[in-house]
């Protein structure tokens, strides 16, 4: 793992910095072309759910999620996110739902 780490991570870090800097450095005066901009606009909307939902709906062994606290927490996060469109409230609400469900299940 160590060799892979010290080979891959520095390259990934440099590549990430390049992504972050392209339009702030040499190309600061350029905008991406309209068509690229149209596609790039949907990057967060696509990647973030693609990252989150498998972790919510499947547990670490690949089977369907059986832990109700996670399902409730994610459902709460989605509901609050759509209602408030506020990152902070969504995180707080989602985690609060997880803890509340855990507490309820511990008692019963």
């Amino acid at each position: 793992m160590s060799e892979t780490f010290w080979f891959a991570v520095p390259i990934l870090a440099l590549g990430t910095f390049a992504l972050r800097f392209i339009f702030l450095g040499y190309f600061v005066a350029k905008k991406p072309s309209d068509e690229w901009a149209r596609a790039l606009k949907y990057t967060p909307a696509a990647i973030l759910p693609a990252l989150a939902m498998p972790a919510v709906l499947f547990d670490s062994s690949g089977a369907w999620q059986s832990d109700p606290t996670r399902l409730v927490g994610a459902a709460a996060a989605i509901a609050i996110g759509v209602a408030t469109r506020n990152v902070l409230w969504t995180v707080l609400g989602g985690m609060a739902a997880v803890w509340a469900t855990t507490a309820v299940l511990t008692v019963f």
Partner: peptide, 29 residues
């Protein structure tokens, strides 16, 4: 995962965004 969902919330504001999220989620699952 909660933070990722939360970061997605502000950008899911129109139908193309929701479609992008739905297609991405379905594929990833």
């Amino acid at each position: 995962p909660i933070a990722f969902l939360a970061l997605a919330a502000p950008v899911l504001v129109d139908r193309p965004s929701w479609l992008a999220a739905a297609v991405a989620t379905a594929t990833a699952l």
